[in-house]
Design a protein around this nucleic acid. Structure first.
Lengths: 198, 198
DNA sequence: ACCTGAACACCGTTCAAGT
DNA sequence: ACCTGAACACCGTTCAAGT
């Protein structure tokens, strides 16, 4: 007659994900331990197996959550008032803001070793990047979707690369703003020099 | 009266590095095991300690070697005949060539968790990137070193980011060439639209 | 359905001891 | 100087068993 609340408080899966995401603030994904996580939550080390068949499955789920959060930030930024130039700038700032605040999570998201959940990670990544492609489609509708996708991917590469250089220390913090401005300027007019901008 | 050849064949440190670098072709850095490496080389698991105080020290040394190899490739590419535009294109190709052939090594090189050898890694990285900054200085001497460093760092970010998107599967292989071309075009004339290029 | 408890093979790190 | 061998604490994974 006990309610359907199990041994644990009801949602071990989410509890593990939340705790792991919190730990990613301080430690890298390599230091995440299922046993430690389990112990802190108050279950035995074998309990996670119901929800994550192995350690990689939890890392994949963390990556999916990370892309969902990043996608939400980018969608907000893409809805900024103004023309395409303002929205592109806003997206760039949002991207750098997210990646610098969550370097360990971002490193996990872009790791090229995903397990069985690799397709799910790829889907969530594609969804997160949709606002970028949308803005570039709006910016240069005459170029066609091929052009927009190309520009969007190079834009993504630029700021993802910048994020990596920042978090590994190659780009010092005081130089971030000028580099973001320089990078954004390279996408004005979708990469072709605007005719009236000397 | 035995010659100064120790127990092992004489250079355990380099043997460990070589074997680890080879393994990085197939496995990620997370799967590298000092014990496995030691066993395959023929020493006990505690032997590496003479040369690498901990596991991170070996990873740091691998990163330093990786930056040395990357730097050599970039120096070659920067010496390509032709003007700055040709050299920039050549450097971009070399960068993408190296990173796509060694994704695990590159992921290790740009990891933001280096240990006591972090400064050594940073130094080797700066040395590797020098050819990029040099070419941008040559391309736009009137802009001054500040401008060249800015452009060089954004260039580096763009191709390092592209490398990451390729190796994690977001950019499909068949699209690499067009994206590299698109990205390179954004650095013609050091980022400012050339006056005679409509 | 959900979790426990014990077992297995592996790991990095440490250190006294050997040569 | 260079490496061994044993010990320690930790890990992911597996699985029969409990509730």
């Amino acid at each position: 007659m006990t309610p359907p609340r199990p041994y644990h408080h009801g949602n071990l899966r989410q509890a593990l994900l939340d705790r792991a995401a919190t730990k990613l603030h301080e430690k890298g994904a390599a230091e995440l331990s299922l046993r430690e996580l389990s112990g802190e939550i108050g279950v035995t080390h074998a309990a996670p197996r119901r929800y994550f068949p192995d350690r990689q499955a939890l890392l994949d789920a963390l990556a999916v959550e990370g892309f969902a959060r990043l996608g939400a930030r980018l969608r907000e930024a893409a809805a900024t008032p103004g023309g395409p130039a303002e929205r592109i700038r806003s997206i760039a700032d949002a991207y750098i803001g997210f990646t610098t605040s969550e370097p360990n999570l971002v490193e996990l998201m872009f790791a090229h070793k995903h397990g069985a959940g690799a397709e799910a990670v790829a889907r969530s990544a594609a969804e997160a990047f949709a606002p970028i492609l949308d803005v570039f489609r709006q910016a240069r509708p005459e170029g066609g979707p091929q052009d927009a996708q190309r520009a969007g991917l190079v834009f993504l590469a630029t700021f993802q690369g910048l994020a990596g250089l920042i978090s590994c220390g190659i780009v010092p913090p005081h130089q971030i703003d000028e580099l973001v401005a320089d990078a954004v300027a390279r996408f004005d007019g979708n990469g072709r020099p605007a005719p009236d901008t000397a």
